[in-house]
Design a protein around this nucleic acid. Sequence first.
RNA 1: GCUCCGUUGGUCAAAUGGAUAAGACGCUACACUUUCUAUGUAGAAUUAAGAGUUCGAUUCUCUUACGGAGUACCA
Length: 523
Amino acid sequence: MIENVRVRFAPSPTGPLHIGGVRTALFNYLFAKKHNGTFILRVEDTDQNRYVEGAEQYIIDALNWCGMPADESPVKPGNYGPYRQSERKAMYKQYADELIASGNAYYAFDTAETLDFHRKDHEAKGKTFIYNWHNRLKLKNSLSLSAEEVKAKLDAGEDYVIRFKSPQDETLHLKDIIRGDIQIDTNVLDDKVLFKSDGMPTYHLANIVDDHLMEISHVIRGEEWLPSLALHYQLYQAFGWEVPEFAHLPLILKPTGKGKLSKRDGDKLGFPVFPLEWKDPKTGDVSRGYKEDGYFPEAMVNFLAFLGWNPGTEQEIFSLDALINAFDLERVNKSGARFDPDKTKWFNHHYMQEQANDELAKKFLPIINEKLNVIQSGSEESQDGISPAGGNDIDVNYVEMVVALVKERATFVSDFWGLSHFFFTAPTSYDEKASKKAFKEGTKDILKEVVSIVNAIDDFTVETLQTNLKGWITSNDIGFGKVMMPLRLALVGALQGPDVFDIMYMIGKAESVARIEKAVAIL
RNA sequence: GCUCCGUUGGUCAAAUGGAUAAGACGCUACACUUUCUAUGUAGAAUUAAGAGUUCGAUUCUCUUACGGAGUACCA
């Protein structure tokens, strides 16, 4: 076991947390818990322009919904706060100054326009403009300007940034837990801005300073940070700090086509890319969430864990605790994983079976009431005998029994109505295709006979129903199909649903007879 | 363009220098004595290409192709 594990999930509050971000958080959480470590949420809000109202709360809510709350966070401070970078603002400057004093960084006065011009100019010539050893002396900074000039500019309050002085002709040896050793030639690196003219650090500086101050032991983040790893290594070295371990997670790719998963893919293919529903405070646009779409958090966590990781065994159903137990960064894949909405549904179907029926019934009840209201206000007729449990007052126990009968083929709670409406309301029509198949010559007489048999049963249970009807069928050599199919159609309105005898028992004798007689009438 | 990372069935993936290359999703068929979208069983389908090392390579090396990420005073 690795000692003193402290990991952080460090999103920027620029909007709802993307599913890829949730996976990054999950892997951090799993790793932390696996090693009895600490899982920290740090909000990286150094870019004031991109701050979005409500995003931080969303992130916290999402983490909680998944069952992986942070041990230390802005709302639950530990001994390493504050946990918002905007609130740590005051501490970054001194570190930037320290780097200047040690010769690892320098002031740069170039305007955004100048830089932009150089970049475009280079591009036009088919070259790439890199601000580094190659040309830094040709630009306006404390390396090219005299000490007096620099002081004058600083005193005059001119805008400046602080850049890292990337060394020349060195080979860096970087280590990544997932990818192994990586070598980088420092000549291709640029002098990244560490400190912005607005007085805020960039991600690079803030990230290193905070990770150091917060005693982060392992940095687990997305692959998009891999190119920055060289800079981060150099920063640790420049400060003389111990370098944490790094692990760069593979990306989550679109289900079809190219590139990484984006919001648009979800809209297009009809699945959410966010854990929770999000309403954009500016545009008012609403993005769907897994929670609102009826996914269970266990299902989402389980399938997310399997995107880029696997236990190496045939087990694929893992609770959060089981994941903590089995998780290992060494078993994380290097290559990007395509997101599979079908597999997600499969997981949800699985976890549906594990849900308690009474809980599901509670979630289903409002849907039933809503549907019945629509039916009632829609058509006046065919209202008698609608709810066998009595009027519109649906009995929760009855719903619970219905759930027990249909949940094995349900993926979402929202599937329940389609699978069980006939338990609550009589069919008003018969599926056309099914009618052709089930209502045939002689069916009328058969159903009439069924009515009398059912009527004759006093002890109305599934068992007696079954023995009496089946006994009648076999002793008269009628054929199950000729009886069961039209019977089902009469009860349900389609060739669907659980066992016919279960349905009859549930809706009760009177309602069963009524429905069969209704079918007889139209035949 | 440049830098870095990657490439096992349609998708997620296991294995690893040595057998017929696991398993899952999806798909197809069959079964459940007869509803199925459920369940069960079966089936089709894979080591990107080319060199090299080796007795032997999916596994190691190189080249090519393809994919991805980064290349901001964004994170």
